[in-house]
Amino acid sequence: MAVPRVFVSSTCYDLKYIRENIRYFINNMGFESILSEDGDVFYAPDQHTHDACLTEVQNCQMFVLIIGGRYGGSYKQEDKSITNKEYEEAIKNKIPVFALVEKNVWSDHFVYQKNRKNKNAESIIYPNADNVKIFDFIDEVRKSENNNAIYAFGDFKDIEQYLKKQWAGLLYNFLVNSIETKKVKDLFEEIHSATEKIEYYTKQVALNVGDVHTNILIKCYDIMLGSGVVQSLKGYWGIELSPQIVIGEESIDVLCNNNIKIDSSEGDSITLSGPPYVCSKIRYESLKRQYKELRNTLLKLLSEEKISAEDFKNVK
């Protein structure tokens, strides 16, 4: 059974006891905890260990960020810490982030905010933080456009209670959204059904009160709706077809102004857009055959109704 993987990111030294407890808590919840110091991260031989951690973040479904008083090691000698880069990776991949900050560090952060513009700001000593970059990191989290909640904790019990509530809310939100999604889906199905009925009634009215040419045009469109070549030409090459166009152009090559290019690849390949319209020989032969069959079917219908192709071109 697949279970959610939870990446725990924090400075390793001052929060070791917290990380050990949170690992036990996550596993006890039935989830899989991912902590770098416990060997949970795969360090590929061709990757820097820091990049391996970022790769592991991408494979997780939740991200727990714990900010303490130690800034931690820098990411590959860059200006930001490894923890900071792991957080940014989670945000980039739209992974839910649950951010927690030690209460003492949170308090020092407000002191920093009040004094950062003072002339002697650099000389201020913050007893609970070894680097003011921690406060910039906190600001980065709380000023994010979304997923920017931060919870100040005193001990592990605070963390446990917070995560339990947040994960329960996450589950509730998922269930409610699933119900709403079903309601929207049901509504679209009702609209689709109503649209089909309207199209059917409109067609019946046209068949009963319209002229002969209009009735034939409706029958031609019915035939084209079930044709694979019509869908392929529109979906891949953006070519819109009408009964008059199909009747008027005797082959798919003429239709495409002889701009079909056969590539050398094997299989049933076809590229988007054009001209030139590129496809494999197998796909070209298939489209050519389908187009010919469609055109012959429309011509047969006109013949049965004793309508010439020339006259049919002017039908609107």
Rank of each mutant, 00 (worst) to 15 (best):
D79P: 00
D79F: 06
D79G: 01
D79C: 01
K80N: 09
K80L: 10
K80I: 03
K80G: 00
K80M: 05
K80D: 08
K80F: 06
S81D: 05
S81Y: 03
S81H: 03
S81C: 05
S81W: 02
S81N: 02
S81E: 04
I82H: 05
I82N: 04
I82D: 03
I82G: 02
I82R: 03
T83Y: 05
T83C: 07
T83S: 08
N84I: 02
N84W: 15
N84L: 02
N84M: 10
K85V: 15
K85L: 15
K85E: 15
K85Y: 14
K85S: 13
E86S: 00
Y87D: 06
E88N: 00
E88L: 00
E89C: 11
E89A: 13
E89K: 13
E89N: 03
A90V: 14
A90F: 12
A90R: 09
A90P: 11
A90I: 10
I91K: 09
I91R: 09
K92S: 12
K92D: 08
K92M: 08
N93V: 09
N93R: 12
N93W: 09
N93P: 11
N93D: 13
N93Q: 14
N93E: 14
K94N: 15
K94Q: 15
I95V: 08
I95M: 04
I95Q: 05
I95C: 04
I95T: 05
I95W: 06
P96L: 12
P96K: 07
P96V: 07
P96R: 03
P96G: 04
A99K: 05
A99G: 07
L100Y: 02
V101A: 13
V101C: 14
V101G: 10
V101Y: 11
V101Q: 12
E102R: 12
E102Q: 14
E102W: 10
K103S: 11
K103R: 13
K103T: 09
N104I: 02
N104C: 05
N104H: 10
N104L: 12
V105M: 05
V105Q: 04
V105Y: 03
V105W: 02
W106H: 14
W106F: 15
S107E: 15
S107W: 12
S107N: 15
S107V: 14
S107Y: 14
S107M: 12
D108N: 11
D108C: 07
D108Y: 04
H109P: 00
H109R: 00
H109Y: 12
